[in-house]
């Protein structure tokens, strides 16, 4: 009986080793990184092509050549000046005050040769099949950047907050439901003022 009460304790000295082993395994297999990128929505596929009558002034053609050079409105341009160019085009507001389609919130130069209105301004992006993806993303990034700058400006003006910050706050899990509903309306409104109109043309097979 005396023997039973005096059970030898299990040696826990090696527990740390076992735990270390597991720890190292999980350390090695872990990837904590979260992915990030540019969100896009592809156009719905419609078999019968729709011909939309668009004024030439409302379209900004951007062509990315196979060596990574850019053509904006049939002129060579560099990536550095693209953002300002796109911004000026979207924000132009070519219709004068008092006429239908006038853009009250635009801050552009109202050049009659450029876009009427941010709702009508379309960026037509065209790339060659051989164009490097890195260049394409750089251009897309500049386009989104131009839109974000304009949206930020309008959001600052209306709600004293940046659009990008509002968007980030909306996606944060801590944000309450009421705050989310409020933000959703504001974000929708700002997006409505400057809708992201980027059209990608079918790629040309022929070599120039």
């Amino acid at each position: 009986m005396g023997r039973r009460t005096k059970m030898p304790g299990v040696n826990a000295g090696s527990m740390a080793d076992i735990a270390f082993l597991l720890l190292i395994f999980f350390l090695v297999t872990t990837s904590i990184e979260t992915d990030a990128g540019l969100d896009r929505r592809l156009p719905r596929e419609n078999k019968d092509s729709v011909v939309v009558d668009y004024h030439k002034r409302n379209i900004l053609p951007i062509l990315i050549g196979k060596n990574g050079d850019l053509m904006v409105k049939e002129e060579l341009a560099s990536l550095g000046e693209l953002r300002a160019f796109v911004r000026a085009f979207i924000d132009n507001g070519g219709i004068l005050e008092g006429n239908q389609g006038h853009c009250g919130y635009c801050g552009g130069e109202a050049d009659p040769e450029s876009s009427d209105n941010p709702l009508k301004a379309v960026i037509a992006l065209n790339s060659h099949r051989e164009t490097k993806y890195g260049v394409y993303i750089a251009v897309q990034n500049e386009l989104v950047g131009a839109y974000n700058e304009l949206r930020d400006r309008e959001a600052q003006h209306l709600y004293q907050k940046n659009f990008t910050d509002m968007d980030r706050e909306y996606h944060r899990p801590e944000t309450t439901a009421e705050a989310k509903a409020d933000l959703r309306n504001k974000i929708k409104y700002i997006r409505g003022l400057y809708p992201l109109n980027i059209v990608e043309l079918p790629q040309q097979q022929k070599s120039e």
Binding site: A138, N141, G145
Partner: peptide, 9 residues
Amino acid sequence: PNANEIKKL
């Protein structure tokens, strides 16, 4: 590629 006007997935 790199970009800075990105959103988290």
